[in-house]
């Protein structure tokens, strides 16, 4: 149906640099799937205006989709690839993984897919921790599956230190090695609170949250109970 194709073409013009460059060349190169009549409908779009609003939306996607949700990960991507927000968004929206997004990429499926694409292309040699950092920041943003709350999460990298380095010290960690990070997270109306756990505490906390306290060392049990009280305010 032509109307469907017109909307699809608009989508491509918005999010795909290649389609935009081809379409807005003098003489309007054909866009795949569009008839001459469809092209006439879209021909009323002013290229300069369109380019302007694409830039505005790139700013929105950077700010509202990612900086708000996974700020350290977004900073790390920009620093590693040497790209500003607009370039980052253009590269992400142009990637096949962008089509994985649901709503405002609420679970960062598109971002994680793109990171995986970049990793395969060996473009993130010093940031192998990025997928775990995204996952950590999603938890901090309260975006976790299921109702379990509080919950224990473990990460293969010390994502808390990496996030601190990026957000507080504005430093991109280089030469990191895998180092486990575990924490208990609690979500309420004010946000998410976390407390770091040792390996033994993480196992114990998991058991406590499942109502299985038998056999837990008394000191570890007490410490876990205190932490739970702390994060639940």
């Amino acid at each position: 149906m032509p109307l469907r194709e017109q909307f699809s073409a608009l989508y491509a013009l918005y999010y795909k640099r290649g389609a935009r460059d081809a379409y807005f060349q003098p003489g309007h190169k054909p866009v795949a799937g569009l008839s001459a009549a469809d092209m006439k409908v879209l021909g009323s779009i002013d290229p300069l205006r369109f380019e302007t609003i694409v830039r505005l939306h790139q700013r929105d996607i950077a700010g509202q989709w990612y900086r708000a949700k996974v700020p350290a990960s977004w900073l790390a991507l920009g620093a590693t690839l040497g790209m500003e927000d607009a370039e980052l968004v253009e590269a992400l929206t142009g990637s096949p993984s962008f089509e994985l997004h649901v709503d405002d990429d609420r679970d960062c499926a598109a971002l994680l897919g793109w990171i995986s694409e970049l990793a395969k292309a060996r473009k993130l040699p010093d940031a192998r921790w990025l997928p775990e950092l995204v996952r950590y920041e999603l938890v901090l943003a309260g975006r976790w599956q299921g109702e379990a709350n509080p919950r224990v999460e473990s990460f293969a990298w010390d994502v808390e230190s990496i996030a601190t380095s990026l957000l507080r010290d504005h430093t991109l960690p280089v030469g990191e090695r895998p180092r486990r990070y575990a924490a208990v997270f609690h979500r309420d109306a004010k946000g998410v609170t976390e407390a770091r756990l040792s390996t033994a505490e993480a196992s114990a906390m998991q058991a406590i949250l499942q109502g299985k306290q038998e056999g837990i060392d008394a000191r570890v049990l007490k410490r876990c109970q205190n932490l739970l009280e702390e994060i639940q305010g």
């Binding site: 032509p2 109307l3 469907r4 017109q6 909307f7 699809s8 608009l10 989508y11 918005y14 409908v41 939306h57 929105d60 996607i61 509202q64 989709w65 089509e99 997004h101 649901v102 709503d103 405002d104």
Partner: peptide
């Protein structure tokens, strides 16, 4: 659009067909 979510409300195309 074709199951893909846009970051804003895509307004109506102002044509007879639409």
């Amino acid at each position: 659009i074709d199951g893909r979510y846009t970051d804003f409300f895509f307004p109506a195309i102002l044509s007879r067909e639409s």
